[in-house]
Amino acid sequence: MTEVNDQEIKAIIFQLKNEEYAISVQQVGSIERMQHITRVPQTSEFVKGVINLRGVVTPIIDLRKRFGIEESEFTDSTRIIIVYIDGLEVGLIVDAAYDVIDIPQSAIEPPPEVIGTVDVDYIEGVAKVDSRLLILLNMKEVLSSKEVKILKSVENS
């Protein structure tokens, strides 16, 4: 992670299916309720479209689809987390976002080798806080240019 606080990382916790994920608060701009999303044709599957975020057209990614989790209906607790990384401004659809906690650096472990179907490169590590297991995301990888490249190849086909 960018900041090396010798003890703790402040992170926003959100939920996808039954698992809990964490992003550093420094990367989060705001958390929005679900709103009308304008579909952008011929982009990759996980790009839901764009929203009007206070005058700025912001692309939205469905994290469930990005991580290969099956889709579900949007509910009252569905949220859009706006993240800022390297000048990119992107919204992520998550099932729920409800908590900000401090994760001690010592509690973070590298991602386990066997983690099922999800690609390991966008997982920074796993942290066990109390009895909860949190998956720390590397947002740069989540939005990595690899995906953008895939996007482009789709467009050109």
Partner: peptide, 16 residues
């Protein structure tokens, strides 16, 4: 308005 840096070169869409 532009679609932002994340969605570049979307086919047949010049902006929003």
């Amino acid at each position: 308005k532009s679609l932002g840096d994340y969605l570049t070169n979307v086919f047949a869409i010049s902006g929003a």
